[in-house]
Amino acid sequence: MAHNMERIRRMSFASIYPLYLEKVERKGRSKDDVDTVITWLTGYDEAGLERVVADETDLETFFAQAPAMNPNASLITGLICGYRVEEIEDPFMQQVRWMDKLVDEVARGKKMTSILRGSTV
């Protein structure tokens, strides 16, 4: 497990971002939808997201340097990859799974106000 966690920490945001886009676009959603939920979660703006993709920033740095993690992120609950996101003890892994869960909800067609836990961007 520790080796797997280290591998995830070192993965670049640029390597998973296109996978998120593919996942939602297959379901008729857009890049804007993905950017909206990632912006809501992390506080990165469009230029910030473009920069971390271009710089191939690893996930650990991506979250460590996030401009403003959303205080409502703790409202993100449910299963993702077999884990209850609200029960994940490692703060980094919880952040990764929060992002996965938000993108999954976009792909499943949930309303944006529901995905953003009642707030707007």
Rank of each mutant, 00 (worst) to 15 (best):
V53D: 01
Y17M: 11
L102R: 02
L75Q: 12
D104Y: 03
A66R: 04
S30H: 09
V121F: 03
A47N: 10
S30D: 12
I16K: 09
R97A: 14
F62P: 04
K110F: 14
D45M: 06
S119D: 13
R7K: 14
C81V: 05
G28W: 07
V85F: 02
A68Q: 12
D45A: 01
E60T: 01
T57H: 08
K110V: 07
V96E: 06
M112T: 13
K31F: 02
Y83Q: 15
I76S: 06
T120L: 14
Q65C: 02
A107S: 09
E105N: 13
G78D: 13
N70V: 05
L102Y: 02
L102K: 10
D58N: 15
I38P: 00
G118P: 04
G109L: 07
R9S: 03
N4Y: 10
I38H: 00
A64F: 04
W98V: 00
E87N: 15
R29Y: 04
V96N: 00
M69Q: 05
A73K: 12
E60V: 02
S114A: 13
Q65P: 00
A47L: 10
K31N: 08
F62Y: 05
F92H: 12
Y83M: 14
N72W: 08
K23H: 11
A73W: 04
I8D: 11
R9C: 01
E105S: 10
T77I: 09
Y17H: 12
P71W: 11
V106K: 11
R29Q: 14
D100H: 09
L79W: 05
I8N: 04
V106F: 04
Q95K: 13
R10V: 04
S12G: 15
T113G: 10
E25W: 06
V52G: 02
Y83W: 10
